[in-house]
Each structure stands twice: as structure tokens, then as C-alpha cells.
């Protein structure tokens, strides 16, 4: 489903202190896989995920997402892929503060125009129940615990039923038992919904549960 060919990414290009964050990265991920991307801090995990998530561009190489060459698409088409086909979960949750759980989860739906207004609430209720935070629906996100906030972030990531879920150290700010709950959710999504999931982490507890481990070191896939 995903194919990267010789991707290179250089931060601060042309500067003296430029960073070659990804070096000739090539990789394949099939549909339905649960993959861990493992590496020490600064090895380029986030950079790779941002590129896979169509959030950032790259300096050379090709990226095929379901056979489509992302390099050749316009910003509107790419935004659409981000909206409908990819769900992104961040370490820092990335929720809009001052808004309710409901509003935060509704955002991708409202941006996409695809779902009917009458169906939005049903859809959100369903996901909230599944993730066990239904009773927090009307609460402001900042009033939730870390684990609950991460659930909201996951709910937002999967609300449009994406093919690919990218999680960048999703348990980095969570304790062990909450991390376990989080992994259970990912397992469930992978098994029952057939979602392809890529989790960046350096936590053995997490990557040991994944089907495949991709190691990255200093911008190179091992």
C-alpha cells in the first residue's frame, strides 16, 4: 500500500548546519500490517512519519500511496488524502484546546464535506463508545486526563475510517497501563477494521507487540 523509493530529507538545506534527516529511505508497507518504526531519539522517525502522512515534503525520491505518486499531486488532493485516508496520532495529542471532545472529533468530518450533518453525531457517538470516553463527550479536552486525551486524538484520527494510521510515539506521555490500553485499541483497529498502522516508538513494550519492526538509525533504514 505504501512504497517509498530513495527518499531524502534535508532540514535547513543550504545552511552550514543542515541536517540530513533521511538518507535514501526505501520501504514497503502492505495493507493490514501493524508495523513499529523503532529508533533512538533524533534518528528520523518523526520526519519519516510526517512524510508518510503527507504533512511535509521531501527533497528527492518517490512516495507511492496506494499506487498514486504523491510527488505529482496538488496541495488540494494531498489535503484530501490527509483528511480521508490517513489518520495521524501525535505524542502531544494535538487537540484544539477550548473545544469539547465532540468538536475536536468532528473537525475532520466538517473539513471533508463527505458526511451528512445528521450522521456526524451518530458516527462520533459510536467511536466514543468504542473508545470508552462517551461520558466525556461534552467536556473540554483540557479537562481530560492524558490517556483520555490520547483516546480523543485516536478518535479524531479514525473518524473518517482511514486506510492508514500513523502514530508518532503515541504513548510517550502516558504511563504503562494507559499505554497498554492504547495498544489494545491499535490491535483492535488492526484486527477488526483492517487498518494499516505504523507506530513510531523507542519503547520495547510497544514494538514487541507489533507484527513487524522497521529500525531506523541516523536517517537510514537498517
Amino acid at each position: 500500500m505504501i512504497e517509498l523509493v530513495n527518499i531524502n530529507k534535508v532540514y535547513r538545506k543550504g545552511n552550514k548546519n543542515d541536517v540530513h534527516a533521511l538518507k535514501d529511505v526505501s520501504l514497503n508497507i502492505e495493507e493490514g500490517e501493524l508495523v513499529a518504526l523503532v529508533g533512538v531519539s533524533g534518528s528520523g522517525k518523526s520526519t519519516l512519519l510526517h512524510i508518510l502522512g503527507c504533512l511535509d515534503d521531501y527533497d528527492s525520491g518517490e512516495y507511492y500511496f496506494k499506487g498514486r505518486n504523491i510527488t505529482k499531486l496538488g496541495s488540494k488532493q494531498i489535503a484530501r488524502i490527509r483528511n480521508e485516508e490517513i489518520g495521524f496520532v501525535l505524542q502531544s495529542f494535538g487537540l484544539i484546546l477550548g473545544n469539547t471532545v465532540y468538536n475536536n472529533i468532528a473537525l475532520p468530518l466538517l473539513l471533508s464535506n463527505k458526511t451528512k450533518v445528521s450522521e456526524i453525531e451518530l458516527k462520533i457517538d459510536e467511536i466514543l463508545k468504542k473508545l470508552g470516553i462517551y461520558q466525556k463527550k461534552k467536556n473540554l479536552v483540557e479537562s481530560l486526563s492524558g490517556g483520555q486525551q490520547q483516546r480523543v486524538a485516536i478518535a479524531r484520527a479514525i473518524i473518517n475510517n482511514p486506510l492508514l494510521i500513523l502514530a508518532d510515539e503515541p504513548t510517550g506521555h502516558l504511563d504503562r497501563s494507559t499505554s497498554k490500553d492504547m495498544m489494545d485499541i491499535f490491535h483492535d483497529l488492526n484486527k477488526n477494521e483492517g487498518a494499516t498502522i505504523l507506530i513510531a516508538t523507542h519503547d520495547p513494550f510497544i514494538y514487541e507487540q507489533c507484527h513487524r519492526i522497521i529500525r531506523i538509525d541516523d536517517g537510514r533504514i537498517q
Partner: peptide, 18 residues
């Protein structure tokens, strides 16, 4: 807060311009 909302909207599938 403006910048954070901007980034979140981008993440959720708005174009940069939108």
C-alpha cells in the same frame, strides 16, 4: 493558539491555504 489551531486544521485535512 492561532498557530496551533492552524497546524491542527492542516493535520486534519485542510490545505495550508485553507
Amino acid at each position: 493558539t492561532y498557530t496551533k489551531t492552524f497546524a491542527t486544521m492542516f493535520l486534519c485535512g485542510a490545505t495550508r491555504r485553507k
